[in-house]
């Protein structure tokens, strides 16, 4: 048993027995890992605030080699993303991002890029009002990190470059754009060239310049249907928080 420390983002919490909590973290060095906070359900627990989901922390833990469930001994807040937790839409969007990461990753598989992407996502949600654009950029970049980068330059059927006059579809199974002629009964959602261009730019831009990207209302509506379904299709899992997020989008 040895005391280790790492920077991490709290992904979720789970009750353990009467008094304890299991916390799931994402760290750049350790990937996704779980730890127990003894007495974590008590209001007197010193780590109550720092182990709240959607918090960037520095965590100290005693490594358990046998169970994979470490013992958390200290957890200090680096960034609480306070503004994210003060707005319902932002909060649910943040929970959606963390659920996506939790579903998409295996334990103890370090991925610095994924950690950076999550920090960017949570930071952008906390800072700005462009929630839909942030969510769509996060989804497409996550798809790339997971190895599901869609083909956005040419039709996957006839391999012709995308042109303005054609109508195009996004195929989940083929993993990219197909033209109306090549679609021939295959399942796919209609996608405009404007939306395709947004996705191309979202992949090409450097992370610090992503704030410049604008998403039109039409593209936002289109990609809101396509990208979450594309990720669900490949992850073979339903993302629970998406249902409540869509409910909030309808209300807005």
């Amino acid at each position: 048993m040895s005391l280790k420390n790492t920077e991490a983002v709290v992904l979720s919490q789970l009750r353990l027995g009467e008094a304890d909590r299991i916390i799931t973290f994402l760290s750049p060095q350790l990937g996704k890992f779980k730890g127990v906070v003894k007495g974590g359900r008590s209001l007197r627990c010193k780590m109550l605030a720092s182990t709240m989901p959607l918090t960037q922390v520095a965590v100290w833990f005693v490594e358990k080699r046998t169970s994979g469930l470490h013992l958390i001994s200290q957890c200090d807040i680096i960034n609480p993303f306070r503004t994210l937790k003060e707005n319902l839409h932002k909060l649910v969007s943040g929970l959606y991002l963390t659920e996506l990461v939790e579903v998409a990753t295996w334990e103890v598989e370090p991925d610095e890029g994924l950690f950076e992407l999550l920090l960017w996502g949570l930071g952008s949600l906390a800072a700005g009002e462009r929630l839909q654009a942030v969510l769509r950029i996060f989804e497409i970049r996550l798809a790339v990190l997971l190895g599901y980068e869609p083909q956005l330059s040419f039709c996957l059927g006839c391999e012709k470059e995308l042109a303005g006059r054609e109508s195009y579809y996004f195929s989940f199974a083929k993993g990219g754009v197909i033209c109306a002629k090549c679609r021939a009964g295959a399942r796919g959602c209609k996608i405009s060239l404007g939306s395709v261009n947004f996705l191309r730019q979202a992949l090409r831009f450097q992370q610090e310049k992503l704030g410049r990207l604008t998403l039109t209302a039409a593209s936002s509506k289109e990609l809101q249907q396509i990208l979450p379904a594309y990720l669900s299709y490949h992850l073979e899992r339903k993302i629970n928080s998406l249902r409540f997020l869509n409910l909030l989008n309808v209300r807005c």
Binding site: V92, L95, E99, N240, R243, L247
Partner: peptide, 10 residues
């Protein structure tokens, strides 16, 4: 309470 991750909606 509302818990989006465990599918408990309003």
């Amino acid at each position: 309470a509302i818990s989006p991750k465990t599918n408990i909606g309003p």
